[in-house]
């Protein structure tokens, strides 16, 4: 299913974000494996992951399952601390790493409040790219495509008719660590 279209000439720049529905997620890890497969993520590493948080005391328990990844922050500290410009904002505000410019100094990893980055065995900082190679072709990121419960939606936050905008208007949502002040673009329906 395709929810995004590539930017046409003269059209405004999209502002890509993701909406994750914690009420639908069953923690099956399909998003994790889809990502590993799509992006050839080396074994033992992960660009996305499942967190399940249980609150309360037995038998009064409440559980939230989240599929987490890079938040593609609008004010991304990983971009501002990068000494070489390897970490940068790509089209649509997707935060990307140019492997060839990265020295592996790990300042971005220290700066990321979400601990979303890791060092690829080849020596550069790596993380979720919102599958920008797919997004360029008008496809959704691999994780959103395979999710069997449709808990993941991707799209342009500035387009009021996009699926993500409509979900955010209609449902209560939160971001993780808003106190970090980085303006994350990964929203969680609660």
């Amino acid at each position: 299913m395709t929810t995004t279209t590539p930017k046409a000439q003269g059209e405004r720049e999209p502002r890509y974000g993701m909406v994750m529905d914690t009420r639908k997620c069953v923690g099956c890890n399909a998003c994790v494996y889809a990502c590993m497969n799509e992006n050839a993520v080396p074994e033992g590493f992960g660009r996305d992951w499942i967190v399940s948080e249980t609150r309360g005391r037995f038998p009064t328990l409440q559980m939230e399952i989240r599929s987490e990844r890079c938040n593609h922050c609008e004010d991304a500290p990983c971009v501002s601390v990068c000494p070489t410009g390897a970490s940068h904002y790509g089209p649509g505000g997707i935060v990307l790493v140019e492997h060839d410019r990265c020295t592996g100094c790990k300042a971005c990893m220290a700066a990321c409040p979400y601990d979303a980055r890791f060092i690829h065995p080849d020596g550069y900082a790596d993380k979720c790219t919102f599958c920008h190679h797919r997004v360029e072709k008008g496809l959704d990121p691999a994780c959103a495509t395979v999710c069997p419960t449709e808990s993941l939606a991707f799209g342009d936050l500035d387009d009021p008719t996009s699926k993500v905008s409509r979900l955010l208007v209609a449902h209560e949502h939160k971001v993780l660590l808003p106190e970090a002040g980085t303006l994350p673009k990964l929203f969680f329906l609660t």
Partner: peptide, 10 residues
């Protein structure tokens, strides 16, 4: 919290 991420160095 059950965390599914186990990235080296992180």
């Amino acid at each position: 919290i059950l965390h599914g991420r186990s990235n080296p160095m992180i």
